[in-house]
Each structure stands twice: as structure tokens, then as C-alpha cells.
Nucleic acid binder design. Sequence first.
RNA 1: GCCGAAGUAACUCAGUGGUAGAGUAGCUCUUUCGUAAAGAGCAAGUCGUGGGUUCAAGUCCCACCUUCGGCUCCA
Length: 583
Amino acid sequence: MKDDNYLKHLRHSTSHLLAAAVVELYPDAKLTLGPAIEEGFYYDIDFGNDKISEEDFSKIEQKMHELVKSWKEFEKHDVSKSDALKEFKGNKYKIELIEEHSQDDHQLTVYESGSFRDLCRGGHVDKPSEELKHFKLLSVAGAYWRGSEKNKMITRIYGTIFPTQKELDEYLKNLELAKLHDHRKLGKELQLFAVSDEVGQGLILWLPKGNIIKEEIENWAKDTEKAWGYQRVTTPNITKSGLYYTSGHLPYYQKDMYPPMKLDDGEEYFLKPMNCPHHHMIYKARPRSYKELPLRLAEYGTCYRYEASGELFGLMRVRGFAQNDSHIYCTQEQAVNEFVQVMKLHEYYYKSLGIKDYYLELALRDPENKKKYHGNEEMWVLAEKLMREAVKRVDIPMVEKTGSAAFYGPKIDFIIKSSIGREFAISTNQIDLFMGDRFGLKYTDKDGTEKTPVIIHRAPLGSHERFIGFLIEHFAGVFPMWLAPVQAVIIPISDEQQGYAATIYEKMNAANIRVENWDESGSMQKKIRSAEKQKIPCMIIIGKKEVDEKTLSVRSRGNKDNTTSTVDEMVDSIKASISERQL
RNA sequence: GCCGAAGUAACUCAGUGGUAGAGUAGCUCUUUCGUAAAGAGCAAGUCGUGGGUUCAAGUCCCACCUUCGGCUCCA
């Protein structure tokens, strides 16, 4: 049995092989780093003035196959700093690494295979010539040296390898299959959304069918959040700049905001990039008592962010979006409990949709770079402590990530994996001890003193855009009945059944079922094909037999076997299926 | 924004310097069909946009726009 560690070694070893082939073919290329990653490996290489594209892959792969024949093993050599500096003297990246590693008294090692030597800390297979066979280079990309956009961008080549050809073929086949379930492809085929050059990049146009999904989700959120003690509010899409100076967002995020409108009152108005300050203003609309807390204000708030063009991605990263947003104002004593409830609300939503593959990411500040963060030390420590306490009370796996906190506090993101293997941060949550103070929010406590409330930020359903993008892939377009844009379609076999079909249509429509009557000319077979392709859950076939017997022949999506029922039974069964949302 | 690639009809795609093509969708007519594509015809494209090279550009060159694969970023 080959374990994960073996796969890691196999992949890292192949990155050496890739590097070896590249330096043979491109003698000026400067190697940097070549780690194994989850599904393969990459090597970052500075090609200097040479350009490389996927067209060059077959040539490189060929060279790799050729070189590996002489790679009997990876031979380890301990080297001193001065020897290492000598050996890699033409390569500024390796020199940087050598300087860095030798600083913390790290023993430098060079691994030799065939005639190729690379600075490396190890982790290889034993018999490269036998094991490094079933690999493939996948894509070429740019990557900043050491991950910082201040550095030079160098070329990254991605590839993968498996122990057997069969596993490699399977992996490649799955990559192809995933493309079929891509939300951008399905969104077009199922006519859910569109974008238009004339409107602008990253601005989503919801088509009638996609809008049904959007409204169903929104209604669900309204019902659910009402039951969980939220009150709904509505706030405008623009606001004066002052609000974002108060929050501290403006200096920090201005390049990611649409530029302001200057009005003749001398004010600058911005499109809102988030809803928080508006909700704070609602909190502030009158004096608050401890008796009102926790106060939970919720809104599907439309926000605009001027995301960099290269970051836009289907529905997942857009410039205009409607956020399932809410802010909970509570006392410090209530905060943990409220945050636990927020986690539980997430669990309820995800369970209802059959989403199982998710985890939490606790985003902490980078202790090396405190300038980036506002607020005082105590506040950061306390916010983190409260959130950790809350997370302990739910059963969701969590990973920690330093350096990715918001500027005003740590946060907990829900990361969901879509069925085609992409991961998305769908919801960002915070116990915020910073903004209450900034905005001068107060409540009068039992003893008559004024206190500042804790603010909890949460967005379990993310934004309509990202969440529906995720759902399209999660369901592969096969939406459950309550979300299906068209729930049933009536297919009369010939024109003679049109009268009966119209009667059925009227009844179903009156029962609030999203039904279409396909009574135009064309073969029944073709209509069934088309209904299957649109993934309509329920096809109602009507021929002479059904008219005579006053019945319906019902074909379910993806299932050739029909059942016979009456209209009333049909309506009841669809209604039952719709209500399955509430688990 | 950065590195790389791509953009031809509504959609999927063919077209390597010499008169813009196919399938699907659409429209018209015929067909009235029993569980995933009935037949014929019609219409549809400033070949992403703008420059340039050439007797001649979808095709070659430059710039820009948009999309895609990544990087960086995501309040």
C-alpha cells in the first residue's frame, strides 16, 4: 500500500527530474523551489529571457524520460555554507535560500541524481529510474518569488505523477469530468446567469432561471433567520466617505473600491464594499439598552468591490454581489454563546443542502508584521480567545493560518470543497472588539453605565453569487426540487392531447408549481432529451392512454422508468419533494 | 495588477496569406410521433476592437478589450 508520504516523495522527486530536464534544454534557467503539492508538484524557475508555454511540454517530458534512466538513486551530500555558495554562485535564488537556511544552523544538503545536483532538504523515492514513470506536465503559470507581489514573477510549471499509469489516466479523466460540472459551463447551459461586456467585468446578470434559485435561497434565509431571532433591515448602496474613515477601511482598501462620486455638497460618496458600517448606523439610530441585546440585524446587502481584473472568476469572485450578511450586537458575556449559535446556523444550512465537506480556518495576525493590524494587543488576544472557546463547542475541524486576519481582528472562515475539488471560503465570521469602539456604539447596562457592545459578523450563505456558483457545482446542475428553476414539464405526445395538457398545466400552475407546457410541435423523444439536458426533475408525458384513463405518466430526471399517477397525486408528490428543504 | 494562453454565427467548433464553413439552437413548411436528436428549406458572422505589413489578412506584426490556467489579493 502506497501511503501519502510515498506520494509526496514521488512527486517531489519528479520535480527534481523536471528541473534537470529544464536546465538541459534551457541552460540559462535558474532553479528556485520545487515542492510536492496536494495533487502533484511544481517547480518555480526563472527562465530569464526565454519564454515557455505548454507547447514545450512534450519536449520537456521527453527529456525527463530520457534522463531518468540514469537516475539510480538520490545521493545525499552534506555541504558547508561556503561550498554551497560556491556551487550555486550564479543563482541568486538559491543563494538567498542558502543564506536563510544557514542562519538557523540548518545542515545544508545537496541531492545528486544522475548528473543533476540540487539544493534540497530531502524527501525522495529510492529508485527513481524505476519509480518516476507515470508523470505529466499540466500547466505553466506565473508565480511571485517567495509569494510576494513585490518580487519578480517567475515561471511555475505544474505537473503530477502517480505510481501507476492507471491512476494517472484516472486523474486526468477526472480533470476532464470536472470541467463538465464547472459552474460557468452549467450556468450558461442551464441559462442561470450571464455577464456582458457592455455592463462590465464581474457584474452578474441573473437570468430568470438563475433568479429563481437566488430568490429561493433568499426566502429560505429570511425564514430561517427569523426563526433564529434575526431582524431584517435594508440599507442603501452608497454612502459618504466619512463612514469608511471611521471604520478604517478607506485608507486600507481604497484601491479595491469603486472610485467615489463627488457631489455638489462637497462630499464623496462610495458604493458600499460591505454592510457593516450601515448596520452600525442602525444600531446607533437610538440609544440602546442591555435589554435589547443580543440585537441581530440581517440583510442581503448588495456590495461592490473593484477586484483586480485577474482575480475575477465566474460567480466565485465578482465585483458586485449580494451578501447574506448580519451583525449581532451583544454583551461580552453573550459573545461566545452567540458565536456558537452562528456556527450552529452554518451547520443547519449546510446539512440541509447535503454539504459535508467543509472545515474552519482560524485566520490570525502575523506576529512579525503587527503594523498591518489596528487595535490594541488585549483586544486581539481576547477576540481570539472567545472564538476558540466557541469553536470548542461545535464539532467542526479547524486549521489555523497566521497572517490572514482582517486588519481589525482575527476571523473564522468556513471553507467548503465543491464536488469538482475546488475549495472556497464561503463565510467569514468574527467576534469584533474593534469597530464598536470606532463607531462609538453604546448600550446602557443594568447598573446604568454605558458600555460598548461586541459585534459578531457572519455570512453563512456567503454571497448569492459565490454560494450559487458553489451550489451549481455541488449539485452538478441537478438541483433539488425546491431549487429547480423548472420543477415539471408537460410533454403531450401529439397535438390531440393539447387540451388535456392545458388542463394539467392550469392545475399545477395554480398549485404554485413551476411548470412549463411544451405543446409546440416536435417529437416527444426530442422534448424528453431536452428536459433531461435541462435537468428538470419531473417530466409529465401525456398520450392517448393518459387522456382516456385521466392519468399522467411521470418520468423522473435521470430515470427511464415511468410511474402512473393522477394530477392530485402528482401535485402532492412535488409539494412533498419541495418541502424536503426543511430537514 | 502580474506571468502564460485563447477569442470565428446564439452555443460547440473547423478553417496555416487567395470568394467565411459545419453541427446544434432559431424561423417557415411537412411530420403527430410512447420515453435522450423526424425531414426539407430559410435566415444568421465588420472573424473581440483599433492600427500596421501585403496586390491580397480570420490567418503575419503591434496596442487595447474580454475570457481561461495560475500568482498575489479578498473587509
